[in-house]
């Protein structure tokens, strides 16, 4: 059983993002980029399924600029067998990414696609669901536990009031929540080995998909800052402020 894992290169989660001075976008030059944390979890889950003998091959794919090769090398170092870059220089919206992945899936024929539930840059939370819809596949989003049965998956999902367990027909798209697993770190020998693993590049514009962005970004700005408040030195003074100044308790 082959598993496909889409991975995205994003601004590292420890770095505070800033708008470009002219408000046209997000300042990324010279800043540390990493694999989207949710995708690390997706990849870890796929690798564990391979280690358990359930998956036969783990293929990592990234849709993005040439620099996304770094992210794919990381994926290979973590345990993916092969990597594919679908290269495109411009804005890559979730729908366009999903369409590119459909083309790749038609060739690769994976049984399961595991993706992160959202990317921490655009926070869209769309690609996995869109991909499942375009393929007419089942989906199991926000997964915190995945078990593979013969031709089905049993997936526990984190939903608003608690947990839901689904049984979905394969092939299927799973999107990962934070508590699915704790991803491993790449070891130095594996980073060396990853350099010899295959990394193929496909030009997105050869796939016959219209990649033109359909959401026009008029501007990117910082939200109004919260003015920082006051220190209170005792519980009594806190209660007094909450009652008489903020008037949030009776």
């Amino acid at each position: 059983m082959k598993i496909l894992v889409p991975v995205k290169r994003v601004l590292d989660y420890n770095i505070k993002p800033r708008a470009k001075a002219d408000g046209s976008g997000v300042e990324l030059t010279g800043l540390k980029m990493s694999m989207n944390p949710f995708d690390e979890i997706a990849l870890e889950e796929a690798i564990r399924l391979k280690e358990k003998g359930i998956a036969s091959e783990v293929v990592a794919v990234s849709c993005g600029q040439t620099s996304s090769q770094d992210t794919l090398r990381t994926a290979l170092a973590l345990g993916a067998d092969r990597a594919i870059l679908i290269e495109h220089d411009g804005e890559f919206e979730p729908l366009a990414v999903a369409k590119c992945l459909v083309k790749l899936i038609e060739q690769e024929q994976p049984k399961i696609v595991i993706c992160g539930k959202q990317a921490i840059d655009d926070d869209a939370n769309q690609t996995g669901q869109m991909l499942a819809a375009l393929l007419n596949w089942s989906q199991a989003t926000f997964a915190s536990k995945v078990e593979v049965e013969e031709d089905r998956l049993l997936v526990t999902r984190e939903i608003d009031g608690g947990l839901e367990t689904l049984s979905v027909t394969l092939p299927s798209v799973v999107t990962t929540d934070l508590r699915l697993n704790d991803p491993r770190f790449a070891t130095l020998p594996n980073i060396m080995k990853a350099k010899k693993k295959p990394l193929e590049t496909i030009q997105a514009n050869t796939l016959g998909i219209d990649l033109t962005p359909r959401v026009t970004i008029l501007g990117v700005r910082e939200p109004d800052p919260r003015s920082s408040g006051v220190r209170v030195d005792s519980v009594d003074s806190l209660i007094d402020k909450l009652k008489h100044e903020a008037k949030v308790i009776a």
Binding site: N125, Q126, G128, Q129, T141, R214
Partner: peptide, 20 residues
């Protein structure tokens, strides 16, 4: 979790982008 689950499926099948 309710809306995020199904709306992207709707958008993709309509071939339109979704805003989140």
């Amino acid at each position: 979790a309710f809306g995020k689950n199904f709306l992207p499926r709707v958008a993709a099948r309509l071939d339109v982008p979704q805003l989140s």
